[in-house]
Write a protein that binds this DNA or RNA. Structure first.
Length: 421
RNA sequence: GGAGAGAUGGCUGAGUGGUCGAAAGCGGCGGUCUUGAAAACCGUUGUCCCUUUUGGGGACCGGGGGUUCGAAUCCCUCUCUCUCCGCCA
């Protein structure tokens, strides 16, 4: 949620921000509703004071005088009640509109409309070269029985799969490895709910725009999370934290669900785009300070880079342009790993800063040194997402005989196994 | 799924129509004492909104609706939590 006071002061800033992010919102209507609301509020406030004062007088009066006053106050009170109802409706509508206004991106974010406008800022390790014709992960998976897509589709429909054998082990190895890396870097590990109330989805900024891409359990009015970012941020919903506890570094390990509603026919081959996957996510809650946010953004980005680098993968970091950012993000970098089967880079990690957008929606605050309650800033980044990260690993480390070399850092998590034959 | 109890400030918990934004205790913060700390004692301590801001006003006792001049307190309704029973990894 954006700060309505900032919107009043500088509506143009928010209009430009929405344009840059390619969001269609009616900010002028919000401004009109807001000023009307304050007018109604002021009028109610002063009348309530009057009503309160006169009401206490009644006790002291008696007889005809008392009855007359009561009669007067009756209609006076009715009118206030009526206006209060009006105010509530007004407020509800204002809030709905406000929830749909995107957080303007930071000034230095490249302006663009789609991923072609993202800016590559870094490339690490060479693109793997093969002296033979490399297979893609689907062929390799079939060869070694790492997963079964056909039967996944039989059981659960399109974009579904089973991992099995070394494939299932490899996913677990990756998860455990990522968790250990984050543990060493001061993160608290979490396994969170994956079924949540609407509040959490709205609060973390996925709703309203992401409704279509979310599985809903209609009977219970609950939703399946697409990332543990939702539950880790909502962990402190409606709380007032202590400044001394910040920054909070959380690592969530959960299954994630995405309907992929807007991507029919896109990335249909293999395990790149699936409805259900396993992810270790980093979430940070820090003081309301842009310098601190910036350095933590770099920190969680470098945590993810460390993981892909230590796996020996070729990757690049791109700065995501305004048109590709979500509603709440002010800054975003993606890590894309090279996937030989696609002959190109594919997104495996997404690192975002929100300033106070999520905290406002979730009413998370912290008591600052000066005794003021402030909205903290939030950030998040992937640590590993499987099976997507399995793709570059399987494809990059294949050998001519079809075997797959397991990255050194994962060997201990594979019970010492070094190669998949 | 069946039966019952409850929802009050950071926490525990009192409060059944006006003097209640709300007792008390705990916790937090400040101070006295101490080499330091603890204990003890003293003081202080909710959130949010509006505003012509050294100030003024209003809202909030789970949500919504109602009764009343006046509601934390009475009525209706919804949600949630707890206890017991049933089912169950």
């Amino acid at each position: 949620m954006i700060d309505i006071r900032k919107l009043r002061e500088n509506p143009q800033y928010f209009k430009t921000g929405a344009q840059k992010k390619v969001f269609d919102v009616d900010i002028d209507t919000v401004l009109v509703l807001d000023s009307e609301k304050r007018k109604i509020q002021a009028s109610i406030d002063s009348r309530k004071k009057e009503l309160g004062n006169k009401s206490t007088l009644i006790k002291k009066k008696s007889g005809a005088e008392k009855e007359e006053l009561q009669e007067d106050l009756k209609s006076f009170s009715r009118k206030i009640k009526k206006d209060e109802k009006k105010l509530r409706q007004h407020d509800k509508r204002l809030r709905e509109l406000l929830l749909a206004i995107p957080n303007p991106p930071m000034d230095d974010v490249p302006v663009g409309k789609d991923e072609d406008d993202n800016v590559e800022i870094k490339r690490v390790n060479d693109i793997p070269q093969f002296s033979f014709k490399p297979k893609d992960h689907v062929e390799l998976g079939l060869l070694h029985g790492l997963f079964d897509i056909e039967r996944g589709v039989k059981a659960a429909g399109t974009r579904s799969y089973y991992l099995k054998g070394d494939g299932a082990l490899l996913e677990n190895a990756l998860i455990r490895y990522a968790l250990d890396v984050l543990l060493n870097r001061g993160f608290t590990p979490f396994v969170t709910p994956i079924i949540v109330k609407e509040e959490c989805m709205v609060g973390s900024g996925f709703f309203p725009p992401g409704r279509e891409d979310t599985y809903e359990i209609e009977k219970d009015e609950l939703f399946l999370i697409g990332t543990s970012e939702v539950t880790l941020v909502a962990f402190h919903m409606n709380e007032i934290l202590s400044e001394n506890d910040l920054p909070l570094r959380y690592a969530g390990s959960t299954t994630c669900f995405r309907r992929e509603a807007g991507s029919y026919g896109k990335d249909i081959r293999g395990l790149y785009r699936v409805h259900q996957f396993q992810k270790v996510e980093q979430v940070v809650i820090c003081r309301a300070d842009y310098d601190e946010m910036k350095s933590l953004h770099e920190e969680i980005l470098s945590n993810a880079e460390y993981i892909v680098q230590s796996l020996g993968l070729c990757y690049r970091v791109v700065e995501v342009c305004t048109g590709e950012m979500g509603m709440g993000q002010v800054k975003k970098h993606d890590i894309e790993c090279y996937m030989p089967g696609r002959g190109g880079f594919g997104e495996t990690h997404s690192c975002s800063s929100f300033d106070d957008f999520q905290a406002r929606r979730l009413r998370i605050r912290y008591k600052s040194g000066s005794g003021q309650n402030l909205f903290p800033f939030t950030l998040n980044n992937t640590a590993v997402a499987s099976p997507r990260l399995l793709i570059p690993i399987i494809e990059s480390f294949q050998n001519e005989d079809g075997s797959i070399t397991i990255p050194d850092v994962l060997v201990p998590y594979m019970n010492g196994k070094k190669k998949i034959h």
